[in-house]
């Protein structure tokens, strides 16, 4: 089962600006501009390791959302491409 994890929290400087959140990733020196749900996703993941199903359940509970595992997988893959989340 594929698991995902975000890097250490200390690697990130997070600046919620408005509809966008600016995020500085210390290891890469890259600045990202994120929109919902990416900041919420990273926040929920914390430093833990998650399967899509576990994370979908956690998000549904926290944000009162309909579960959509396919959409969540797509968002996670975007964060993997951005270097903010690792496939584990």
């Amino acid at each position: 089962m594929t698991r995902f994890r975000a890097g250490p929290r200390a690697d990130l400087l997070v600046a919620p600006l408005d509809a966008f959140t600016a995020l500085y990733h210390r290891p890469s020196g890259i600045t990202h501009l994120l929109s919902t749900p990416a900041p919420e996703l990273l926040d929920t993941m914390g430093e833990g390791e998650w399967t899509v199903a576990e994370l979908a359940a956690a998000l549904a509970a926290r944000f009162d959302l309909e579960r959509d595992d396919a959409a969540l997988t797509a968002r996670l893959e975007e964060l993997v491409d951005a270097g903010l989340v690792e496939r584990w």
Partner: peptide, 18 residues
């Protein structure tokens, strides 16, 4: 020099924007 400055650049730009 935003990219070259790294984290201090982010801090300065964020502060101005906010």
């Amino acid at each position: 020099n935003y990219v070259a400055l790294g984290e201090p650049g982010f801090v300065a730009a964020r502060r101005l924007a906010e």
